[in-house]
Nucleic acid binder design. Structure first.
Lengths: 347, 347
DNA sequence: CTGAAAGCGCTTACAG
DNA sequence: CTGAAAGCGCTTACAG
């Protein structure tokens, strides 16, 4: 029955039991519910564990107990730095509860969704955190049909029954317009995210609500996709407008920065000729010239809160509806890229 | 023997065997070595697998086969965007070979190293990729003592016996000096990384070699730690020097950018008054004003190559010495932050 | 408080 | 080519 692998055999629970003169059941209990053992027994087992350097085999434990103590995080693109901080919050919270973290990277596509579903169906994880705004599908089944608990973070999933944690995108977008309007801007532009993205939809909706609240009845809408390059492209279109908008709200910081750079190259000065405001509060936004006015998202907290909900669900708790939708505020950071509207020289 | 969990029971290999009228052994073979089955048998099993939606339980497979089909990646700081691309390369390669990816985040400290060692000792992974430049220790044992294969990527580990993949840091740093010297700069400065970091040591060594090669016998060395803030702080010191260096090489892009911003605030113009060159080629370096001259690291390839070596080791292959040290080139990207040395007005 | 024993769901040497 | 059966290393209801 021995297989090919000839590495030195690891210490098993049976070895420890023999050393301590107890049964394997007692060793198991010493590790999981020490309070139930007599002090002397516990001491003997603990000593044996120490001395042998015993570590329980996780596969055996998972198989027997039916729990993997592992959560899967589905990320749209692991190379996108936005998610790093969110992941850190998730990891902190999970490891506090002795759960490990498995990363499922979609590479911005859907091809790998089936892999995600497979991992779950193979019993490898006890729960799933979705950062991709969509329920993964694969092999003719959706992730939620597997019955494992799920929580969405950052990008919510419309109509989903599981808990969701997001930032107040709409309210923040409204505030962006109010900020610009208060500076006297009347001709605004908005650079969008990808059309089907939920963040984009919320931010654009908030932008429009903000326009209405400020008594403005139109704005220039420039298509984008959250990349630097899209911001640069939007700038080119913007510069061709007549009359040119005096302020832009970009749906994220990368686009705002790409736009600022291109505007600068074209000879515009920010904020004298053009005010720019972004979204996310990436670290970099504070190191561009001029520094970017934007909204800080509590990324780590978003991750941490989502993970906390998932842990509860993985432990079998049913999350009540009033806790199932967490909305954290985004904070406006007024920096140097927004300023008073330029004086009009045409009446 | 039933436990608390009352979720609907998943399909097991026994169910499929019954459906197909074969033994569980045959089902197992249909999945792992289909060529060994008669076509008819294979077809029947395949149909049963399809119809039942059977997915093998990974814990059971791991326990029995002694392989987890999972690799652990030790990351110094998951919130550092530098690692995202490396991770992506790793993930691509691992998943090509049907290995999963477990993230072990150190949060820039050593406290969690013990957790890492535990995961390995618990048999949860078949191999480890180290991005942290150090062999994790914990519970009186080092990771390498566990006997699992390891590979270091980006930050090498001195004296380690396992394969390592790195970038030619020293050669690149030399080239940085040569580039500046060719532009006529004679008074150079270097902003360091953390003193004990291997990248820092290599880059500083290369910097010094470059000075010698250019016939320069000294330079201003400013301490840093790879952060934006350290770059800003270095700028302050730099500005106080008399005579002031005309060019700076920063050990990474963040510091170069932090330094440029502070220099700009102090009224210096880059590159007219000061040339700046960074290292890493982060995306952002192309969106600062002026764009940053830097070295592009093939991050994805670094990850991919490291993972490829690890996969081979996990499959039992002994990596020959001549393959065990991969050194990929870093490419100089000349952009707008470096220019001719200013004319001297003091003789 | 502790032990004997079943069994989680697989894989694989062995036999035919 | 296929099956019967052992056994990977745990946990836990059951019994005492």
């Amino acid at each position: 029955m021995r297989d090919g692998r000839t590495e030195r055999r690891a210490v098993t629970i049976a070895d420890v039991a023999a050393m301590g003169g107890v049964s394997t059941a007692t060793v198991s209990r010493a590790l999981s519910e020490p309070a139930q053992l007599r002090t002397g027994t516990l001491a003997r087992v603990t000593a044996a564990v120490q001395q042998s350097g015993y570590r329980p085999n996780i596969a055996a434990r998972t198989l027997r107990a039916g729990r993997a103590m592992l959560a899967l995080v589905v990320v749209p693109d692991i190379a996108n730095s936005f998610f790093s901080d969110v992941l850190r919050g998730i990891e902190d919270e999970l490891s506090r509860h002795h759960y490990g973290l498995l990363i499922g990277n979609l590479n911005n596509g859907r091809a790998r969704e089936a892999q995600i579903v497979d991992v779950v169906r193979a019993g490898q994880v006890d729960g799933v955190l979705l950062l991709n705004g969509r329920i993964p599908h694969g092999g003719g089944q959706s992730l939620t049909q597997t019955g494992v608990p799920a929580v969405a973070v950052c990008e919510t999933v419309e109509g989903a029954l599981f808990p969701q944690v997001e930032v107040c995108n709409r309210e923040a977008a409204r505030e962006a317009v109010a900020h610009l309007a208060a500076l006297g801007h009347r001709r605004l532009a908005y650079v969008t995210g990808p059309a089907r993205n939920v963040l984009e939809r919320e931010r654009q909706a908030g932008f429009r609500e903000g326009l209405a609240a400020a008594g403005l009845d139109g704005a220039c809408v420039l298509p984008g996709d959250f990349t630097f390059a899209a911001g640069a492209a939007a700038a080119t279109v913007l510069l061709a407008q007549e009359p040119r908008p005096t302020a832009v709200f970009a749906a994220n910081d990368e686009m705002a920065i790409g736009l600022m750079k291109t505007a600068w190259r074209a000879g515009l000065e920010v904020p004298r000729d053009l005010s720019v405001i972004g979204f996310d509060g990436i670290e970099f936004a504070d190191y561009v010239q001029p520094t970017l006015t934007t909204f800080r998202q509590p990324r780590r907290e978003l991750g941490q809160r989502g993970a906390a909900l998932l842990v509860r669900a993985m432990l079998g708790e049913v999350i009540p509806a009033y806790e199932a939708r967490l909305r954290l505020p985004a904070t406006l950071l007024v920096r140097d890229s927004t300023g008073p509207a330029p004086k009009e020289n045409t009446a």
